[in-house]
């Protein structure tokens, strides 16, 4: 039971990182971006590519399975994922924005997600890959609870990221502009805010978080081109539970989905685990469509 709780929190924190990026872009750009999950795949594989170029996996840090090169690879992955997001926005989403039919842009994001996944498949192949071959030994932290040092790193990193993002949104001018844009784009422009610049930064932040989530996820599971796709439903469930545009809500939503998935094995056969986020999504949409932290009014980025 304790082990399942710990596993749930770990999966949940990775889902949370991905969901923060998704909730920000959904709140500010106002469409459901199905390609966001593929940013996670792209980020994870870009880090793999960067690691391959940096040479052998040297000197792991302490008890972790990886060393400094992985951190550098994570930064490179964030940059490359941001570039991909900006390119997709420029080529696909921006030309479609403001069309009378909002569904066009949503469907185009489906197309983009297929394209990105296939490009990853083409470059890296479909077989499972790993960042590291180092064997890690789980550390017992409590009776019946063993945690890998990598998992602790994932958890710590997520907490630091969420807190920094919160301060960024609350304390900086760009963060304030992002929250304003999420509530009322026209009024933001009237206030002298160049919304194109703010939107670009939103993509960069969302994509970077997705890349980080991808690398952290890659540390705990094997890399396959489908990892993003399998996170798609949990991500959307987390965003909708938390209320679209609500960063704190996305974190709570991610943890709820992660915990529900890992605790579900006590009630239903493990093979049905993947259906859990779907069921949560249905319940939330039925009972409280605006999410736990969403207001009846359009939620801004908080």
């Amino acid at each position: 039971m304790l082990q399942a709780l710990a596993d749930g929190i770990l999966t949940g924190s990775i889902i949370a990182l991905g969901a923060i990026g998704l909730t920000l872009t959904m709140g500010i750009l106002r469409f459901a971006n199905f390609a966001h999950a593929e940013m996670i795949t792209w980020g994870a594989y870009m880090a793999l590519g960067a690691l391959a170029l940096m040479g052998p996996f040297m000197a792991p840090l302490g008890a972790l399975s990886f060393g400094l090169p992985l951190i550098i690879a994570m930064v490179i992955a964030a940059v490359l994922t941001s570039l991909l997001a900006l390119m997709i926005d420029h080529l696909v989403f921006r030309p479609l924005h403001g069309r009378p039919n909002d569904m066009t842009i949503v469907f185009s994001s489906f197309g983009v997600s297929l394209l990105v996944r296939m490009v990853v498949l083409l470059i890296f192949g479909g077989s499972a890959q790993y960042y590291s071959n180092t064997l890690q030994i789980a550390v017992p932290v409590a009776p019946g609870l063993r945690i890998l040092p990598d998992q602790l790193f994932v958890l710590g990193f997520t907490i630091v990221t969420v807190i920094s993002l919160h301060f960024f949104l609350q304390r900086t001018r760009l963060g304030l502009a992002m929250r304003a844009l999420a509530e009322n784009p026209t009024l933001a422009r009237v206030n002298g805010i160049d919304t194109r610049v703010v939107i670009r930064w939103t993509w960069v932040i969302g994509a970077s978080l997705a890349a980080v989530a991808g690398v952290l996820y890659g540390l705990t599971v094997q890399l396959r081109p489908e990892i993003g796709f399998h996170l798609l439903l949990p991500l959307f469930a987390a965003v909708i539970i938390g209320g679209v545009g609500n960063v704190f809500g996305a974190v709570v939503g991610g943890l709820i989905v992660g915990l529900a998935e890992s605790l579900s094995v006590f009630i239903i056969p493990p093979s049905y685990k993947l259906a859990v986020p779907f069921i949560i999504l249905l319940i939330v949409l039925y009972v409280r469509p605006t999410g736990i932290f969403g207001s009846a009014h359009h939620a801004g980025a908080k």
């Binding site: 001018r173 304030l176 929250r179 999420a182 933001a188 206030n191 805010i193 908080k302």
Partner: peptide, 16 residues
Amino acid sequence: VFTTLTINENLLLGAS
């Protein structure tokens, strides 16, 4: 006005 922002934030935005 931006209803989800504070009065002070509304004013800061006006000075963007």
